[in-house]
Simulated assay, not measured.
Amino acid sequence: MSPECATDCQTLATLTAFQRDLLRTLAKTDEQSGLSLKTDLTTYYGEAINHSRLYQNLDELVRHGLINKRQRDGRTNSYSLTDAAQTALAKRDAWIRGETA
């Protein structure tokens, strides 16, 4: 495993379940708005997702270098996975399946 991947995979391992669920939700499509993510997670959890919880966790994932954030317009941001996040998620999936990297 490359040093970059080891770092990315370690970062993924330290995330909360909610943060990993955000990454998995983003992995379904190329780019999503915060509202779209909130809707998807509300459906999955079966309860309302607090606005503050959502955006604090998105900002944390941006700081970790796992998601990109770009401004669509004056009010809306779009979020997408970074290459590091895609690699880390693939490595985690392989680990869960019992495969070695």
Rank of each mutant, 00 (worst) to 15 (best):
P3D: 15
D30F: 11
Q71R: 13
I67Y: 05
D83M: 10
T16Y: 07
A6D: 14
S2C: 04
L23N: 06
R75K: 13
D93K: 15
D8A: 15
S78H: 14
S2D: 13
N50V: 11
L37C: 12
N68R: 13
H51D: 13
R24H: 11
D73R: 03
Q19C: 00
H51M: 05
D21A: 11
V62A: 13
T39I: 12
L23F: 01
A101V: 12
Y44D: 11
D59Q: 14
Y55N: 14
A90M: 11
W95I: 13
L22F: 03
A84S: 11
K28Q: 14
T29S: 12
T42H: 09
G74A: 09
Q56H: 10
G98Q: 02
K38V: 00
S2P: 03
T76I: 15
E4C: 06
L89D: 04
L61Q: 05
T25C: 11
I96F: 02
K91Q: 14
A90K: 15
L22N: 03
D40Q: 12
G74L: 06
R75Y: 08
N77W: 06
N68Q: 10
P3I: 08
T87R: 15
Q10M: 12
T29G: 05
A6E: 15
M1Y: 00
G46L: 11
S52L: 08
T76K: 03
L22H: 02
T29W: 08
T7M: 00
M1N: 08
K28Y: 02
D73E: 06
M1L: 11
S36E: 15
K28V: 04
L15H: 05
L26K: 07
A13C: 07
R97Y: 00
S78I: 09
Q19Y: 05
R20P: 02
Q71N: 05
L26C: 00
K38F: 03
L81E: 01
T76M: 03
K69V: 13
M1S: 14
T43D: 14
T14Q: 14
N57L: 02
Q56P: 04
L23C: 02
K28W: 03
C5A: 09
D59F: 01
K91C: 14
W95Q: 13
G98V: 05
N68C: 07
A27H: 10
A90V: 10
F18Y: 09
Q86W: 03
G74F: 07
H64P: 03
L54M: 14
T14I: 04
K91L: 13
L35A: 14
R72S: 08
C9V: 15
R63N: 08
A88R: 06
S33C: 03
N50S: 10
R97M: 09
Y79A: 08
L37N: 05
G98K: 12
A6I: 08
G98M: 02
S52A: 09
G74S: 09
E60I: 06
S78G: 01
N57T: 03
L81P: 05
D8V: 00
A88N: 06
H64Y: 10
A94F: 04
G74Q: 07
G34L: 01
